[in-house]
Design a binder for these strands. Structure first.
Length: 881
RNA sequence: GGGGGAUUAGCUCAGUUGGGAGAGCACCAGGCUGGCAGUCUGGGUGUCAAGGGUUCGAAUCCCUUAUCCUCCA
């Protein structure tokens, strides 16, 4: 066997060889960034190695290195590039995977990139060059000329824009041609097409390395301008190269997956065979994604990233039910995943227990959902007249209740029903279109002018709140009726890390502009959003000199709340023995919100303990220090980091006194006493183990106290007492009320003894449709509907064949209530009587056969109506005939 | 970001064209039993998520907000 000439290599060795190879070529080894893109809300997850370097190509601001190499953890499971549906069907796609890459930012280009890639594959990996094919973008002549020097032309395949032209990531930005390297796994795995070659969807040619050459900058109008800092961006899936190096049939039969498959065999009692392959693959793929997502701080949720995680966990669990596992089991796969990766990603070991408990909770919830799904299915299906389930019903199950399609299909088959999937797809498509259209509409932004290229805004707001700068772009936001200004230098802090964007004023020669929000984009450009308060957009000149001034009041409030947030975090950790963990925060000018994971029950005592601790620290007037240092150094010094990793730049560390420090990009007060005072307004549980504290500081706290004290003063004034005696007075009053109520009840009971005699006095016998009926009337002013109803009930239990008609005057209106005993109600209905009577009284009403009510405004007619009731009722019954 | 659904007693949930707020469990009181387990009798403990509107009358219909579930992006 010739295959054995190449030595099998495990995945750790491949990672190491790759990074070392490029390090020798003067690349800086950059650690993998988090799966959650740092400062990039446009992207759901890190989906490629280049994500953390994106802005290095787009801008011309200084960068720490021009060559980099990394092994990046990636997730493609939601948003723009999702592979979720492909998992299990192919042996080469994953939701979570690792991508090896080398990058050039305005340094080397196609020639070196291609030659080094070839050298690595053939010399380091020792792959037989005869088996390698490549593809290139058909219009990229540079690339084909380089390849021609390396391998015969019949193994160099041109492909179109769809396959071999990359980007831009959004509508604008860096993009360029790419070239891909494939391995031919032999004619056996080919499709039947004799013309089979790279680009074909069958299994013969496996693409494993994509070299992208960002060289253009796409403009909003679609034109391609040359990129000044053009470069190289390559990506090789670790799972694919491992498969090749280990001679495996698919990515799943490598050392990255085998231990997981073995464990799953043990749990399910089934073997990994052709029959169970799909389920096994989906489960082991998804558990990796789950472990890494939770490890990077994502929790199951009903929107955004958390929602993607929830779907992944549920899909995996559902596959489990197909191989007859019906209890929580995914958590048992966490340990094997951690064992595979703990060398490369040591933080997994630390969060392992938490990952397990989050997964268990989610599995339990999903089991509940499946149970309720079955209930909904059987109730709805009874309404059907034939055995076809309409698409609308299918869609409602799926869309509203989240019942998985597969489950619907299973249940339907079990009960012998036929789902109309075609109609279902129509509904789904309609929803997709609607969502897409709406989201495009929301983001309309019309440029008035825009300097090119647009560079990262220089942020000066840590030290200054006022800045002389130049205006380099102006946009109109027609949907929000607002404008956006971009400056070359800005003191405005843009919204990030939970802290809201600064507000303030930008003034030019003939205009001034109120900034109500500041935002930042992935390129680091700060947008000042707001309205013109004098002048209009036509008065703004390109490159005009302006003065940008941040609102001090706004900034100070925000700073106080941000530092207060850190102190709350510190106190929570102290009280919980470091078990509390920040899950998110909002730092605005009026209030702050702090969400955290806390595995213990929290009661009011703990909340007030936290509040007094925080205020003690505020009063102790500790200095708040800001330092810049490397990430490594910060962690060594014990700073708390919410985001696990970030590329080699310096990070900011905020320290309070000598007891707490935290990585943070936000703005803070200089000493804790500037916070003034902190009041916790609410403490609530917002989910499984997830708690929320809302608090106010500075004048907002003062106003809170002031308002409460005013209420207290009003209350004491009303009760003619002092705050100290307030509780005593209230208790006394309560007792008095109780006594009074008892008295009233006694009186009512006495009075009600008279009611039957009153009613009897007013009883008249009439004949309706040859049936003897007693008409009983009464007027009890001041009694409510409810009380009249009770009287009517009492009367109805004593008199047979009765029509009871009661009235009263409440708030100047005549209210009417009618009760008719069951046998009589078949002849004449209470609602008819009430409608008729209330009409006479200038009102209306209605109800059911035995009971009805209504009201009218002409109270002077009540007595007449009552004394005439038996006649009126006779009339009604005759009309009905 | 855009849809669909939900929110009713401590918990799980019913509530029909708008017409008197309900069930089971839990809870409280009393009885039976030597004690426990148990059981019988009695008791509803409620801002129908919040606010506004329509109506003689709203848990129910309309609008706004909050929270949760779910689908799509």
């Amino acid at each position: 066997m010739k295959k054995l000439e190449r030595k099998s290599m495990n995945s750790s060795q491949i990672r190491k060889k790759y990074l070392e190879f490029f390090e020798k070529k003067n690349h800086t080894i950059v650690p993998s960034s988090s799966l959650i893109p740092f400062d990039d809300p446009s992207l759901l997850f890190t989906s490629a190695g280049m994500v953390q370097f994106k802005k290095f190509w787009a801008t011309e601001t200084p960068i720490p290195y021009t060559r980099a190499t990394s092994c990046q953890k990636c997730l493609r499971a939601g948003g723009k590039d999702s592979d979720l549906e492909k998992i299990g069907l192919s042996g080469r796609h994953h939701t979570f995977f690792e991508m090896l890459g080398n990058f050039s930012f305005g340094d080397y280009f196609k020639e070196e990139a291609i030659n080094w890639a070839w050298e690595f594959v053939t010399c380091e990996m020792k792959i037989d060059p005869q088996k390698l094919w490549v593809s290139y973008y058909s219009e990229d002549h540079e690339t084909i000329n380089i390849w021609k020097k390396i391998l015969p032309e019949n193994r160099i395949i041109p492909l179109g824009k769809k396959d071999n032209f990359w980007g831009p990531a959004g509508d604008t930005g860096p993009c360029g041609p790419c070239t891909e390297i494939y391995i031919d796994s032999g004619i056996d795995s080919s499709c039947s097409n004799p013309d089979c070659k790279p680009g074909c969807d069958c299994n013969r040619f496996l693409e494993f390395w994509n070299l992208v050459f960002p060289q253009y900058n796409q403009q909003a109008d679609g034109t391609l301008l040359p990129l000044k800092r053009r470069g190289v961006d390559t990506g090789m899936g670790l799972e694919r190269i491992a498969r090749i190096m280990q001679g495996a049939g698919s990515n799943y039969e490598t050392d990255l997956f085998i231990p997981l498959i073995r464990k799953l065999e043990e749990i399910s009692g089934l073997k990994y065979t052709e029959k169970t392959m799909k389920e096994f693959r989906i489960i082991v793929d998804h558990i990796r994604a789950t472990v890494f997502l939770i490890g990077d701080g994502v929790y199951p949720d009903n929107e955004g990233r958390g929602y993607v995680l929830r779907r992944i966990i549920r899909r995996a669990f559902f596959q489990g039910t197909k191989i007859e596992i019906n209890q929580p089991f995914l958590l048992r796969l966490v340990s094997p995943v951690v064992s595979i990766f703990h060398d490369v990603y040591p933080n997994l070991e630390k969060t392992k227990e938490e990952i397990e408990s989050v997964i268990l909770e989610e599995e339990k919830k999903f089991i509940d959902l499946l149970a309720s799904a079955k209930k909904i299915f059987s109730t709805d299906i009874e309404k059907l007249k034939n055995n076809i389930i309409p698409g609308e019903m299918l869609f409602r199950w799926y869309d509203t209740y989240g019942i998985p399609r597969d489950l619907i299909a299973e249940l339907a088959e079990e009960k012998g029903f036929e789902p109309d999937w075609q109609e279902f797809e129509k509904h789904l498509k309609q929803q997709q279109q609607q969502a897409r259209q709406k989201s495009i509409f929301e983001q309309r932004r019309e440029p008035i002018f825009e300097m090119s290229p647009l560079n990262e805004t220089i942020f000066t707001g840590y030290s200054n709140t006022e800045e002389q700068s130049n205006i380099i772009a102006l946009y109109h936001l027609p949907d929000r009726k607002m404008w956006e200004i971009v400056l070359d230098k800005s003191p405005f802090y843009p919204e990030k890390g939970g802290q809201v964007g600064d507000r303030g004023i930008i003034s030019g020669k003939n205009w001034s502009f109120e900034v109500i929000d500041s935002q930042i984009d992935p390129r680091g450009i700060i947008y000042h959003i707001g309205r013109f308060i004098s002048g209009t957009f036509q008065d703004v000149e390109e490159s005009e000199k302006v003065v940008a001034r941040v609102s001090m009041e706004h900034r100070l409030d925000v700073c106080a709340n941000h530092t207060a947030t850190h102190i709350i975090h510190y106190c929570l950790r102290k009280i919980s023995d470091n078990r509390a963990k920040q899950a998110g925060s909002y730092v605005g000018p009026e209030r702050l919100r702090f969400d955290f994971i806390y595995p213990l029950p929290v009661n009011q005592d703990i909340v007030s303990l936290i509040e007094s601790e925080v205020n003690r620290i505020i009063l102790e007037n500790h200095p708040v220090k800001v330092e810049e240092m490397t990430y490594q150094k910060a962690i060594e010094k014990g700073a708390i980091a919410l985001f696990t990793e970030k590329y080699g730049e310096k990070v900011r560390v905020i320290s309070i006194g000598d007891f707490h420090s935290e990585l943070c990009g936000g703005t803070h007060v200089r000493r804790t006493s500037e916070i003034g005072i902190l009041k916790i307004l609410s403490f609530s549980s917002i989910g499984e183990n997830l708690k929320r504290i809302e608090a106010v500081t500075r004048q907002h706290a003062y106003h809170w106290f002031k308002q409460k004290i005013e209420i207290l003063q009003q209350a004491t004034a009303q009760l003619k007492t002092t705050p100290e005696n307030l509780l005593f007075s209230i208790n006394k009053m309560k007792k008095q009320i109780q006594e009074l109520e008892n008295k009233i009840n006694t009186l009512m009971e006495k009075a009600s003894m008279d009611i039957p005699s009153t009613l009897k006095k007013n009883k008249k016998e009439i004949s309706v449709k040859n049936k003897n009926v007693s008409v009983v009337t009464g007027r009890f002013d001041g009694l409510s509907f409810e009380q009249l109803g009770k009287i009517a009930d009492g009367a109805a239990s004593e008199i047979t064949n009765a029509i009871i008609l009661l009235t009263s005057v409440v708030n100047g209106r005549a209210i009417v209530l009618c009760k008719i005993t069951p046998d009589v109600s078949k002849i004449i209905q209470a609602s008819h009587v009430v409608k008729h009577i209330t009409k006479i009284l200038g009102g209306s009403g209605g109800g059911k056969a035995e009971f009805a009510q209504g009201s009218g405004k002409e109270i002077e007619k009540i007595d007449e109506v009552i004394s005439n009731a038996h006649n009126i009722i006779k009339e009604i019954s005759e009309q009905l005939n």
